[in-house]
Write a protein that binds this DNA or RNA. Sequence first.
DNA 1: GATGAATGAGCGTTCATTCAT
DNA 2: GATGAATGAACGCTCATTCAT
Lengths: 202, 202, 202, 202
Amino acid sequence: MQPENISEKKAERYEDIIRAAFDVFIKKGFHQTKMEEIARKAGIGKGTIYEYFPGKKELFCGMVKECMTWYFDSIRQSTEHGENFRQKLENMMDAHIKFAMHAKKLTSLMSHDFTYISRDLHMWIMQGQKKMIGLVEGILRQGIDEGMLRPIDVHLAAVMFLTSWRIFFAESVFNDNEDAELSLEKMKEKTLDILFHGIMNV
Amino acid sequence: MQPENISEKKAERYEDIIRAAFDVFIKKGFHQTKMEEIARKAGIGKGTIYEYFPGKKELFCGMVKECMTWYFDSIRQSTEHGENFRQKLENMMDAHIKFAMHAKKLTSLMSHDFTYISRDLHMWIMQGQKKMIGLVEGILRQGIDEGMLRPIDVHLAAVMFLTSWRIFFAESVFNDNEDAELSLEKMKEKTLDILFHGIMNV
Amino acid sequence: MQPENISEKKAERYEDIIRAAFDVFIKKGFHQTKMEEIARKAGIGKGTIYEYFPGKKELFCGMVKECMTWYFDSIRQSTEHGENFRQKLENMMDAHIKFAMHAKKLTSLMSHDFTYISRDLHMWIMQGQKKMIGLVEGILRQGIDEGMLRPIDVHLAAVMFLTSWRIFFAESVFNDNEDAELSLEKMKEKTLDILFHGIMNV
Amino acid sequence: MQPENISEKKAERYEDIIRAAFDVFIKKGFHQTKMEEIARKAGIGKGTIYEYFPGKKELFCGMVKECMTWYFDSIRQSTEHGENFRQKLENMMDAHIKFAMHAKKLTSLMSHDFTYISRDLHMWIMQGQKKMIGLVEGILRQGIDEGMLRPIDVHLAAVMFLTSWRIFFAESVFNDNEDAELSLEKMKEKTLDILFHGIMNV
DNA sequence: GATGAATGAGCGTTCATTCAT
DNA sequence: GATGAATGAACGCTCATTCAT
């Protein structure tokens, strides 16, 4: 067999393993996943994985990087062909949605490890979040009734409002400075400003 | 010793354990955390934990529920005292920020298990997200330059734009119906509409 | 309180614990039995047991010795009042049956476990059984001297006589009916009949 | 390596483990036996046992069943080649003695403990014993039909016959001398003599 | 003396990794 | 190169025992 065939075969194997790893890690989370199951799913022996990856961690990282690289690349490419800013933002969103449909559960893998720790806890938290969404929906509906708000989709707006909070977690990671509280106040106002008035010029 | 003192002491111990569990679970994630370390942190013996919790899972769930109950409650209460819808939304955000400052890393515990699997991977993904934020910031800046957008904080708006995508994952969990793609198209437009024009009536 | 009352109370407690230990050990075996359950059954605190016994092993041994002493004594006494060898053997069997009915499961409890729990206890019981064998041997020898018995191997016959008692345990497992005592009487007679006259036709 | 060699090796390992388990369980009892010691005795790693048995309980049960199957089988076979009832009873006793010499302490191991270890195993063994009783009953009934035996209670006599075997276990403890087999032969004859003709003078 | 909360040695079991075939 | 049987470090959990109250 020719050398190119060999390395072709190797590359194929590599892909098989990544794919199998993706499937199982997604379904069970990192710690509940056993190397043996990945091997079985890939149709190879347990030891063979170690010919391609030094260990479980590296396999996991390799798999995530593979996925995320594809994701990041498709997002980047999507911005290269829009005519105006709006077109570009829409293209990005399209690219994201396309990815999301294909790898729905990747984020769930990356979030909520405890889905696998306790289904009850997971449900309990989902219930809590649903109640919070309902709470915000009620407030928004009140705003619409009072004529203050446009007749927007209250559910979607509620979710956006709540997800926008994540900024405070994400940002606080980067901004660990002393005047954190000050900038938080400003962030809050800016966030509400965008939510209330949008980013467009009138 | 009087019975009230005993149950007081028990309640105190319970709190000690929850606190120690919080610290260690936050720092290491569920699977990397050893019961012995929690015990050490709580200043008690390994076996003592099992006098208060049936097992590791239950301790974890107890800890999360304790935190989230406090969070949910404070959010709910925050909406009871606002005069108008805007006041209420602000109150909610304040309550959230207060919690976020106190339990910064709780969400990171609940999301991204792989922070603990590989610091490198975590950093790599953060870099990717930063690049994406930069990408969006550039597009938004272009929009401002073109006079289409208000002189908003492009960083904040970029993050909001990106976090708003989570809706598609979150929603897809609830809407597993056939016409998912159709509703996705609508969701996209509605999301962009809110982002562009805000929720306020003009 | 007077000292004799105190030691009276102590003796009473001691008995309570032995009785509770008997109940639980019989029901669950040595290793499955938890000290806490014995304490609960005895209506005292867990630590109190250790005021009366150095540990679990010693409690078990104490309980077994108490029972077996009573058993051995009743067997010995039963041989003191028979007129002839047959009467004595019957008395022994009666004494055994009476004990067996009261402590059906004790023998099964004892049979193996405690060889490993306490070599001393094992030896002690072996000694007791040896004495019993000697007792029966004496009776049989008397029978031979009186010309009533053939010049059989008294040791072997004694062991056979004693092992034949196990029937009462084995059978009682299958026959848990009301008229158990009646059928026991019949069994005794049949057993002695076979022992005395053999199974062969003459 | 050929597949037959592999399964040969596996079967060999299986036997090694059973044998090691037998040795240690017999010497120490179920609860005092540590998996690690069995592994050491079998010359393998601790984890390897779990490739062959799901757990400690199952290993114990497997070991007991292996032994008892061999025992029950040898007893059954022994009754197939006797010409008359006496020959058959003698064959049974021979088979038993052969087993008893090989596995002196097995019965004492089995007697109680595993009621709590595995109800299934307990039932399984009870079934085996019931079959053995039935076997002897049949032989005795044959003897009665042939006019050789008195119309005794065959069930009781069968149980007595079987329990009398315990002598060989009990005695062998005291007589560990070289000529054990010789004295066993004598014991067998004496035992049968008493069983057949009783102890009474005619 | 009596208690029961606290303890920690000890063990069964898992599973990522290795290496002889 | 591919395999999977073998491995043993690691950890959750139990429960006899202790000792402060």
